[in-house]
Simulated scan of single mutants.
Amino acid sequence: MTIAPDDAQRDARLYQVMREFVSSMDDTLPGKFEITKEGIVHDMMSPAKPHELTVLRVRRLLERVLPDGLVAHTGTPDVELAPEGIMRHPDVMVIAEADMEGEGSFDPCTLFAAVEVVSRSNPDNDWVGKTRDYPLLGIPVYAVLDPRTGSGAVFSDIHSTPAGPRYATRKEFVYGEDIAIGDWTIPTADLPRYP
């Protein structure tokens, strides 16, 4: 008699293998690894100066308007939902400081918002993959800033679709406009563009 694992067991094992691979590569190869429903995403390029400057400025802008107890975090660990087989690393996470305590990855349900600065080397990761994965993770607000075009969008209002949870609202903006990320409004006038 043969006992074959069901799809959920197979998916859980595959995710564990990918998770172990990503952990083993963290300090070995340059770039950033994330796990999506499609597999491992490897952004091989080190972030450009305009990317990192944008992350820094957005973090500072958010911290000026966030209430006590909430922070705009730009470091590690990742945001992970193992049952869905997803591990992502937002450029900026709005999270309660108390939810950062303990070991392991952040629970995505504790995030108030995620902000991504589009990578020059892999823009689809931010515009397509994360637009799909973040509502699945339950992240209520997702802001995308694109230094390639000087524009972006804020996604919100998660709703169910036949393809899974998706954002129902997309508010586009151009650099120079103020944008609302959840309950907090920040300017975008001084954000750098890619040359």
Score class of each variant (00 low, 15 high):
residue 119 S to A: 09
residue 34 E to K: 03
residue 64 R to M: 05
residue 86 I to C: 03
residue 166 R to W: 07
residue 27 D to P: 06
residue 5 P to S: 15
residue 66 L to Y: 05
residue 49 K to I: 12
residue 123 P to L: 00
residue 178 D to R: 09
residue 104 G to I: 01
residue 135 P to A: 07
residue 194 Y to V: 04
residue 99 D to P: 06
residue 160 S to C: 08
residue 16 Q to F: 03
residue 179 I to M: 06
residue 48 A to Y: 11
residue 19 R to T: 14
residue 144 V to Q: 05
residue 167 Y to A: 00
residue 73 H to A: 14
residue 87 M to W: 04
residue 156 S to N: 11
residue 126 D to H: 04
residue 13 R to T: 11
residue 135 P to W: 08
residue 54 T to L: 08
residue 118 V to P: 09
residue 143 A to W: 11
residue 173 F to Q: 02
residue 12 A to D: 07
residue 44 M to S: 12
residue 158 I to L: 12
residue 151 S to G: 09
residue 52 E to A: 02
residue 49 K to H: 15
residue 33 F to R: 06
residue 18 M to P: 12
residue 108 P to Q: 03
residue 142 Y to D: 02
residue 129 G to K: 10
residue 30 P to K: 14
residue 156 S to V: 10
residue 29 L to C: 03
residue 107 D to N: 13
residue 94 V to T: 15
residue 89 H to C: 11
residue 165 P to H: 07
residue 135 P to R: 01
residue 118 V to E: 02
residue 167 Y to L: 02
residue 72 A to K: 04
residue 80 E to G: 08
residue 165 P to V: 06
residue 129 G to S: 15
residue 181 I to K: 01
residue 59 R to V: 05
residue 4 A to V: 12
residue 20 E to Y: 09
residue 111 L to G: 10
residue 82 A to I: 03
residue 171 K to S: 13
residue 68 D to E: 15
residue 86 I to K: 01
residue 120 R to C: 01
residue 133 D to Y: 03
residue 120 R to S: 05
residue 186 I to D: 00
residue 41 V to M: 05
residue 12 A to L: 03
residue 36 T to M: 01
residue 54 T to A: 11
residue 80 E to W: 10
residue 117 V to W: 13
residue 104 G to E: 09
residue 136 L to I: 14
residue 5 P to F: 13
residue 126 D to Q: 08
residue 111 L to F: 04
residue 155 F to L: 00
residue 163 A to T: 04
residue 173 F to K: 05
residue 68 D to N: 06
residue 25 M to E: 05
residue 100 M to Y: 12
